[in-house]
Design a protein around this nucleic acid. Structure first.
Lengths: 225, 225
DNA sequence: ACCTGAACACCGTTCAAGT
DNA sequence: ACCTGAACACCGTTCAAGT
């Protein structure tokens, strides 16, 4: 005789939403390597095979999880010609913060172009800000691509340390160690620039790259297309 | 009675070099996902356990393979103040070509800062070119970081298609398909810019990003460090 | 329609036993 | 010192059998 449903806590029914939330929970706690079908299934008190009703495969699960993460980004207010540069910078920083909460998720948009609803909405917003700023349509189109690659790579790189449970400072020290053992005659530039190569925190360096690209945008001919 | 060594082809003895070459052969043919310890061992007619004399683990094997790939890059002639910009562009294009020959290898430098001899030599050369061009030391130091993230992300993205056996054109079509199904009212900018968003080949787009960053470098204050 | 256990074909890494 | 087979603890995915 099976116990009445009254006597045991109701098990939440499976759903696409439940699978995604379980996946995101594992991702936050253990990083992208920890997001295995079996691990996510355990979180839902079921077996891996049960997930295949809601996702096509692991890659599809990760793609859908990525779009959820992008959905957390505050897109800010409507594009404003007077504040476009600040709006663009804010949007990109917000994107980085959102992705950094989920260690390794940035590998997903590097591995295939995102076409989820939230990713598409964010891309459209970025294009809107650039156009509000008077940026040429051709430059704006390609800029979104370029800056997204940079954003994703930057987030992926920092999140890897999180996943490995190492501190950014420890990694810095390792790099300094490796560089300081180099023969100065063979590596005059690295030797001379050592202090600057590892200076600044991740955010400062990321922002430097962003400003570089935005200033470049204002000083580069649109592509001939 | 074992046959005389005369009677059978000598099996090449294992060595660090042999393991790396076997790994690179598998990488070229099957992409980074195909580079498993077991697969590389098979290439050497042995078992996976035998590789652990020469590499600490799979990540270490990939790190060492990456440095071999970087070793294939032609660093060009000595930094020349008159030609620094062309030299910089050429070095970055050569880096991309080298990595693109090995599908997915670009994920390695995204996952941990490369400190192999060839990677360090290439970084020193890039710094040398920037300094020859009169770029401020602080800007040069951070620029190497920024442009490397971009380079690695760009190479990783294109190589993923290779690994999946898909053509770049097919992917383009998929993206166009996804975009054309969007509600124009919700996505006015993507809709308006559709033709440009997917225009140009990978090389043109990559070069646009490079010129953006170099022009940005010439129009951005050095970081305050 | 949804869920499940078991099976299949893989992984990386370790270790005792060999040479 | 180097090499190996076997074992351990995992994977993603499929499928027949259940409800």
């Amino acid at each position: 005789m099976s116990p009445s449903t009254r006597d045991r806590p109701a098990k939440a029914p499976l759903s696409r939403e439940a699978v995604l939330q379980a996946g995101l929970k594992v991702l936050r706690a253990e990083g992208i390597e920890g997001v295995t079908m079996r691990r996510v299934a355990t979180e839902l008190d079921t077996g891996a095979a049960s997930l295949y009703v809601y996702v096509r495969n692991r890659q599809d699960l990760l793609n859908q999880m990525f779009d959820e993460v992008i959905g957390e980004i505050d897109l800010g207010d409507a594009p404003d010609p007077k504040r476009w540069r600040d709006q663009l910078t804010a949007l990109l920083h917000a994107s980085r913060v959102a992705m950094d909460r989920y260690p390794g998720i940035a590998r997903v948009p590097l591995a295939n172009v995102p076409t989820g609803p939230n990713a598409v909405r964010a891309a459209d917003r970025m294009l809107g800000i650039l156009r509000a700023g008077g940026v040429d349509d051709r430059s704006a189109s390609w800029f979104v691509d370029v800056v997204s690659l940079y954003l994703n790579a930057a987030s992926y790189e920092t999140s890897i340390y999180v996943e490995e449970g190492r501190e950014h400072d420890d990694v810095d020290e390792e790099i300094r160690d490796a560089f300081s053992q180099l023969d100065p005659a063979d590596h005059p530039n690295i030797t001379a620039l050592m202090p600057m190569l590892t200076a600044g925190d991740g955010d400062e360096r990321f922002d430097f790259g962003l400003q570089l690209m935005i200033n470049g945008l204002l000083n580069t001919e649109p592509p001939k297309i």
